[in-house]
């Protein structure tokens, strides 16, 4: 049971990370910086709870806000370029953040032991949950409440004017510009929102693993962050959740009986998935079929 709860926690956090990339991908920009924002949120939230003794919710909000502000600042120079250049710029930014934490040392004595981030050794003893008597179930519930709130917010945004603007920029920049959409503002806003969401995910991640280090926030995590929404399809937010369940639940956990062949299959299955379903697992066609199924049932009920 604990294993399953742990898995739901993991799926929750990775879905939040994936959704942070989803917002940016809607505008057609590929970002490999999400692991950096995730790391900023993780370190700051963990420092506020362990060193300053804050409650977890304000700590996470502050961490996420810092990540969002950094995203906004980085967004202006980075989003002047696009395509491959943006991939490189965001990769470099993510690596820069990772190296920053690798060289960051700030420890204070707390009772017998020293706590705080310690360079390459990482940040140990983030014991907010055990100290305050949260059980694994409580933590899983906490994560999923936040995740569902984020998904509902994004779902609503998708159906509102803001979502239409984001998708317009993603589909065709020139056309979007010609109807008066400010490209830079749209992209930077999406980038900042993405940074904020990634920061929230990072805050949760730091607290439930209790130990973070710079290597957790590498380019590999960032590629996973964009892999979820792309694999799931950008039609709506549920795609990202499905992709995380597919990757973390089925590929990573379900194939565990295969030993170290699992990792081999993992990469190969992503390649196969992209060959078979180039527009994602939940593409427009699936959405249409599901939507039609529901609407006919409703129609019959009315009749």
């Amino acid at each position: 049971m604990d294993f399953l709860l742990g898995l739901t926690q993991l799926i929750g956090v990775h879905t939040i990370l994936g959704l942070s990339a989803y917002v940016v991908l809607l505008t057609g920009q590929v970002t490999i910086a999400q692991a950096g924002f995730f790391g900023i949120g993780a370190y700051i939230a963990a420092m506020l709870t362990t060193l300053a003794g804050w409650h977890i919710v304000p700590a996470m909000l502050v961490g996420a806000s810092v990540a969002g502000v950094v995203a906004c600042i980085v967004g202006f120079p980075a989003l002047r370029v696009k395509g491959l250049m943006l991939v490189v710029a965001t990769t470099a930014f993510g690596e820069f953040v990772r190296l920053f934490w690798f060289n960051f040392d700030y420890q204070i004595a707390k009772g017998e032991i020293m706590v705080g981030p310690e360079g390459g050794e990482g940040f140990k003893q983030i014991r907010y949950f055990p100290e305050n008597g949260w059980t694994t179930g409580d933590v899983a519930l906490f994560i999923w409440v936040i995740l569902i709130a984020i998904m509902l917010a994004l779902w609503w945004m998708d159906r509102s004017r803001a979502g239409a603007v984001l998708r317009a920029v993603g589909e065709d920049e020139l056309a979007a510009q010609s109807v008066g959409i400010n490209l830079t503002a749209t992209k930077v806003t999406a980038f900042a929102v993405g940074g904020f969401i990634a920061g929230i995910g990072g805050g949760i991640y730091a607290h439930y693993t209790t130990h973070i280090e710079h290597a957790n926030f590498s380019v590999l995590l960032a590629t996973f962050a964009i892999a979820y929404p792309i694999l799931g399809g950008l039609t709506n937010v549920t795609g990202t959740l499905f992709a995380v369940v597919f990757i973390q639940g089925i590929l990573v956990e379900g194939l565990r009986f295969m030993g170290d062949w699992r990792n081999l299959l993992f990469g190969a299955l992503i390649v196969v998935a992209m060959n078979v379903r180039p527009r994602g697992l939940i593409d427009e066609r699936v959405v249409m079929i599901v939507g039609r199924a529901f609407s006919t049932r409703k129609g019959r009920a009315d009749a």
Partner: peptide, 11 residues
């Protein structure tokens, strides 16, 4: 294609 190459990198 971007994601497919990422899968290939991991593979």
């Amino acid at each position: 294609t971007l994601l497919a190459t990422v899968g290939m990198l991991i593979f």
